[in-house]
Design a protein around this nucleic acid. Structure first.
Lengths: 105, 105
DNA sequence: AAAACATTTGGTTATTTTGCCAAAAAAGAA
DNA sequence: TTCTTTTTTGGCAAAATAACCAAATGTTTT
C-alpha cells in the first residue's frame, strides 16, 4: 500500500465511519424522504439534543449531509443520496450471516 | 424508533463499522480479485501479523468475508461482493466534499 | 518427535468515540 | 429589551477500538 493509497483508504474509511453508527444510519434513512430539522430527530430518538447535534456534525463533516438555517430551525438534507443504497447490501450481509450461523448449529 | 428498529440499525451499523477502517477496507478491495491468504496482506501492509489477523476476524464476524484453512495457510474471500460497490459512492462523497470545501475559500 | 511456519489469542496501553450536562449562540416572540 | 425556543459547543467520564508484544495453536517438514 503506497502512501497515496493509504491516504485514499483513510479518507474512504472516514466516510464509512460517519455512517457506522445506529443513530446516524437512522438519520440518513429519515432524510431519504427529504429534509428534516433537528427537533424532529430529537423527538423520535430518545437522546439528548446535544447528542443528535453532534451526530449531525459528524455526517456533515463527512460530506454526507448538508444543512441550512431557516428561522429558528436548522434543516438537514442528504447531499449524496447514493449512501442509502448501502442499506440493501448491508441487509444482504446480515441475512447471509444469519444463515451461516444457523448452519453451525 | 421502535426497539425492533433500534436492533436493526445496530446490526447494520455493525456491518458498516467493520468496513470503516482503512486497513479493512483495503483488504476488502484486495479480495475483489479472489481469495488471498493472511501472509499476502501482511507483506503488503506494514503492520503486525496479529493486527491483520484481528482485522480479518472483525470482517468475518460481520459476515463480509469467509475463510478456509488449506495446509498451513488460511485463505479469505469476500462472502458478499456487493460491499465493493460502496467504494464508488464513498468516492463520490469525498469528491463532493472537496468541491464544497474549495468553494468556501 | 522436534523444528519451522502460518495464524490466532491474550494481555496491555494509547487513542478515539459516545453520551450526558451545563453553558453559549442565534433567532423570533412578547 | 427580555423571554423563549432551537441548536451548537465545551468539558468530562465511560466505553469501545487499535496496535503491539508474547505466548499458544495447528500444520507441515525434517
Amino acid at each position: 500500500m503506497t502512501p497515496k493509497e493509504k491516504r485514499q483508504y483513510e479518507a474512504r474509511a472516514k466516510v464509512l465511519k460517519a455512517l457506522a453508527h445506529p443513530t446516524r444510519l437512522w438519520i440518513a434513512r429519515q432524510l431519504s424522504d427529504g429534509e428534516h430539522c433537528v427537533c424532529e430527530f430529537v423527538d423520535a430518538v430518545d437522546v439528548d439534543f446535544s447528542t443528535i447535534s453532534k451526530h449531525l456534525t459528524v455526517l456533515k463533516e463527512a460530506g454526507i449531509v448538508e444543512s441550512e438555517k431557516r428561522g429558528k430551525q436548522v434543516y438537514y438534507r442528504l447531499k449524496i443520496p447514493c449512501v442509502l443504497r448501502f442499506m440493501e447490501c448491508v441487509d444482504a450481509v446480515i441475512l447471509a450471516q444469519i444463515v451461516t450461523q444457523s448452519e453451525l448449529l
